[in-house]
Design a protein around this nucleic acid. Structure first.
Ligand SMILES: [Zn+2]
Ligand SMILES: [Zn+2]
Ligand SMILES: [Zn+2]
Ligand SMILES: [Zn+2]
Lengths: 143, 143
DNA sequence: ACACTAAATGCAACTGAGTTGCAAGAAGAA
DNA sequence: TTCTTCTTGCAACTCAGTTGCATTTAGTGT
């Protein structure tokens, strides 16, 4: 882990008024470095020896989500995948793409999405989450 | 249940080359009549005395989803909510709105959504699912 | 109408990510 | 440093979902 990432993690925690504890800094660093959403086991695996108890990871993710630093990106096979919220705007999370061929899910973080209406039939729409489905570049070739 | 709904359910099963068994017809009828996505317990509750075994409901929903007649609309508190696919198009499911105030999720089946690109960086995009978040009409008043 | 076969059902038992309670430990304020 | 409050680790629990298998049934073809 780079010292820059660590610094970023600590800053985010401070801004969210969360205590800067080793487990939180560690988990947040993993998510800041990840290119794809990770589930709890994957986060634990990346921490290896420094991994805290699984309940601590669980509660850490809860706290980070409540603070808005981390998002629950999607659920697959009954497990949640988490990611840093840094590549999402206030009104729109970046889309996730699930391949019907290989089952893999990836972030399309740079994809521009058409904006949705801010209100509809009395509903105030504050945030939009988009899930895409189809064939990934690899599976498209094989087909 | 109206005889029309039953007929519709049986037709859908036949078209999908699925056996028209009592549990399947019953579960499908419930979903065709529902205005909101339902989880397994809610489906069972609506069938009351006629409710099949929970494993049968589970496997029925699996079969209906595999056939594309039913969609897994969203997951909430570790349980899946199902709905008939009749109000979705091939490329776009109707959006679901979750209120951050009361936690309720509702279908915005008539809402028009801007179309998303059919391909992006080598990905072939076949279907789009949109999840919205904000305040529902009731919670907006109270606020 | 009857026999046959592949598919569906019900039951019981299992799975495992998520969740909780509580005692011990650590962060941050005074 | 002391104190208070929040956080952590452990063990135990929850419960929707999942599986295996024996029994039943839908649909097909006599
Ligand atoms: Zn693929
Ligand atoms: Zn992402
Ligand atoms: Zn509401
Ligand atoms: Zn819906």
């Amino acid at each position: 882990m780079s010292p820059a990432t660590r610094c970023k993690a600590e800053t985010l925690l401070t801004e969210a008024a969360l205590r800067r504890t080793p487990p939180r800094i560690a988990v947040l660093q993993v998510l800041l470095n990840a290119r794809e959403p990770l589930n709890q086991d994957q986060i634990t695996a990346r921490l290896d020896r420094d991994a805290p108890n699984k309940v601590t990871v669980y509660r850490t993710l809860q706290a980070l989500c409540a603070a808005g630093i981390v998002h629950r990106a999607f659920v697959q096979k009954r497990t949640w995948y988490f990611e840093s919220a840094e590549r999402c705007t206030e009104h729109q999370c970046h889309p996730h793409f699930t391949c019907t061929g290989c089952g893999r899910t990836s972030c399309l973080a740079e994809m521009r999405l058409p904006a949705v209406a801010r209100s509809y039939k009395g509903y105030t729409i504050q945030r939009q989450r988009v899930q895409l489905e189809g064939l990934c570049p690899k599976c498209r070739e094989c087909k």
